[in-house]
């Protein structure tokens, strides 16, 4: 897959006015006819040009939130503005800005890729532009399949075609609902590259995923949603700094049967049959206490041959937040 570049004038959308949120969601709730409350009083601002990852387990309300913003689901309460346009009162202006890549591989099986892209472009109020359609199809490595019926394409190709359709009208905001679902590792990395390139060209990207690795790799900011409630919205680096924990592991020369009395009360733990001494510390604290600890270990006569530190991943943080919530 060829990457899109910022210098690619044809695919670069006009940046919306600075200072205004790309998407502004206020007190949004959704209760389905069955009585199931999918969203509970969500308030969220998506900034221009950022990659925002919406994380949450299955059924958390991610797709409902996207579908409301895109006009597919009607909200029960609250308001949404896209580029300053209310999605109900000024739906044309709001929707024209958005491209949606749905979670399901929903394509018209008997059409060709250019034909289905022409439909997408027309639906969003743009005149036909065969050169642009060719360009996007080439960039997504689908041009060779331009005469094939969609039904004959592989799953990965169909996923790329859905992206091509979403880009057909040159949107300023792109929703990617579980873009990596059922996608192999290579294609996933290609897709990440594509998303970065789009962001570089000014597109605001909102992606939902339950692959935490994906959010960790790409997102600028992260929102965690669970049971219809937005638990946290934070800059990814900040979130990992605030909620992340680090661990120092010392590989001992001689195994210990127990923690020496001189080291008790320092939050140490033995692992690997006494061959490892583990110290966990909070990255938010002013001092980590590592220098003191190493001095105390030396004074206690404990010798180590190696040491390493590890940091909790976004996944660890995510799981912790969900546990906290429940």
């Amino acid at each position: 897959m060829h990457s899109l570049t910022a210098s690619d004038a044809q695919i670069r959308p006009a940046r919306a006015s600075a200072g205004m949120s790309a998407i502004s969601i206020r007190n949004l709730s959704k209760t389905y006819a069955s009585g199931f409350q999918a969203l509970k009083d969500i308030t969220l601002e998506i900034r221009h040009g950022e990659i925002f990852a919406l994380l949450g387990p299955n059924g958390a309300g991610k797709t409902t939130l996207i579908n409301i913003v895109c006009g597919i689901v009607t909200p029960s309460a609250g308001s949404v503005r896209v580029g300053g346009h209310d999605i109900a009162a000024h739906y044309r202006a709001a929707r024209a800005m958005i491209g949606l890549v749905p979670q399901e591989l929903t394509t018209d099986a008997f059409e060709t890729p250019p034909a289905t892209m022409r439909l997408s472009r027309g639906l969003f109020g743009k005149a036909g532009n065969p050169a642009y359609i060719e360009k996007v199809l080439r960039q997504l490595s689908l041009w060779d399949k331009r005469n094939s019926r969609i039904v004959t394409l592989s799953g990965g190709m169909k996923r790329r075609l859905l992206i091509a359709k979403a880009l057909a009208h040159e949107p300023q905001i792109l929703f990617l609902d579980e873009p990596s679902a059922g996608v192999d590792v290579e294609l996933r990395k290609d897709m990440w590259q594509l998303v970065r390139s789009l962001r570089a060209s000014g597109v605001t990207i909102i992606l939902t995923t339950h692959y935490i690795e994906e959010a960790e790799e790409m997102a600028d900011r992260v929102g965690v949603i669970n049971k219809g409630e937005l638990i946290v919205v934070e800059d990814k680096v900040e979130l990992m700094r605030k909620l992340g924990r680090k661990q120092l592991t010392l590989e001992l020369r001689e195994p210990l049967a127990a923690i020496p009395a001189a080291l008790s009360g320092r939050g140490l733990a033995l692992a690997a049959d006494g061959r490892q001494l583990i110290y966990s510390y909070d990255t938010r604290s002013e001092g980590t206490g590592i220098t003191d600890l190493l001095d105390a270990i030396r004074n206690a006569g404990v010798k180590f041959k190696d040491l390493q530190t590890t940091q909790s991943s976004l996944e660890d943080i995510f799981v912790g937040l969900l546990r906290q919530g429940s």
Partner: peptide, 13 residues
């Protein structure tokens, strides 16, 4: 039936 209706519902139409 196939789900492509999402595109029509999300379009400025």
């Amino acid at each position: 039936f196939v789900g492509t209706i999402y595109e029509i519902l999300s379009a400025p139409v």
